[in-house]
Design a protein around this nucleic acid. Structure first.
Lengths: 157, 157
DNA sequence: TCTTGACCTGTTATAGTATTACATACATAG
DNA sequence: CTATGTATGTAATACTATAACAGGTCAAGA
């Protein structure tokens, strides 16, 4: 079973990701400011996809600005830097579990508990790009999202 | 090159799809009412992804209700019946070019002209489901959307 | 040191997307 | 004919996202 779906020490995996993020940003000369860092933490702690307004609410409760752009800007930054992903289907955001590694994930979204896992699908993406190329279409960005039931919710049902 | 990207007699392909839709609905005992049919026609005529409010505006101009639910209900119906697809990335809808055939399309969305083509990717979907199954995840629905440049816009650029 | 310029944050206002809830009409089976 | 399910119309509202501008911070160079 995939780690995301297993019981695991969550504070540990979140801490790891955060440390990796800080290292990456330092390396790139990008600024992981307090708001941005806090947003990343929020996403990591939640361990599921959060809407921009969910994030905003938490930020506001901690004394940061409480207007939408505050959340959207931080989220956009994280997405640009590959520290988070946007889940189109949910109008929501989730922390990236493999920041730094170049990866082409598919997202598996549980309909019941909203957990989001990243599945590695590099070959699938290559196949899609090949198919598109045959049609004369030049692919820029791909989003691959599947909904269904995660192992836990499947057992519960 | 893929037919969607070629110059073609558009009223013809639209008429075809409409006839196929009516046959399908009759077969299933589902009701392709005037609003629903008109919405499908609108999507077919546009031949690109339209937002719900674009559709609504056209409906209203023809004497149908002019409140959002009128458009959303018809669109939801068409999507359920497989006569249209929702393009998450654009918050928009497009007529299905292969209604009735079971298919698992990927959508190729041109960033410049917003044309949307369906690429056949059944094997890709199968590969994804296999990968998900290995993680214990039961896939229900998949959405696979790529943005980039269609042949025409690529040449123009 | 001072200034400049780039970038980040905050705020107001507004645009765009979607749903809830309820009332009315319409078709078909009994 | 009438009861039932389904479709449509409308009002109100919720949710998601962006534009535009003001003020603050910080580092590089004069």
């Amino acid at each position: 079973m995939h780690p995301t779906f297993q019981h695991h020490d969550h504070s540990h995996c979140a801490g790891d990701s955060l440390a990796r993020a800080e290292a990456l940003m330092a390396e790139r000369g990008a600024r992981l400011t307090p708001v941005r860092k806090r947003v990343l933490e929020i996403l990591l702690e939640a361990h599921k996809a959060l809407g921009a307004y969910d994030v905003l609410q938490r930020l506001a409760a901690e004394g940061y600005g409480n207007q939408p752009p505050v959340a959207y800007r931080a989220l956009d930054f994280l997405v640009e830097q590959g520290l988070a992903h946007r889940i189109q289907r949910l109008n929501a955001f989730t922390a990236c579990m493999h920041a730094g590694e170049t990866h082409a994930p598919a997202f598996l979204i549980c309909d019941r508990c909203a957990t989001v896992a990243e599945a590695p699908v590099a070959p699938i993406r290559a196949a899609l790009e090949a198919a598109a190329a045959e049609m004369g279409f030049a692919v820029d960005r791909v989003s691959l999202e599947a909904t269904g039931l995660c192992p836990a919710c499947k057992d519960a049902a």
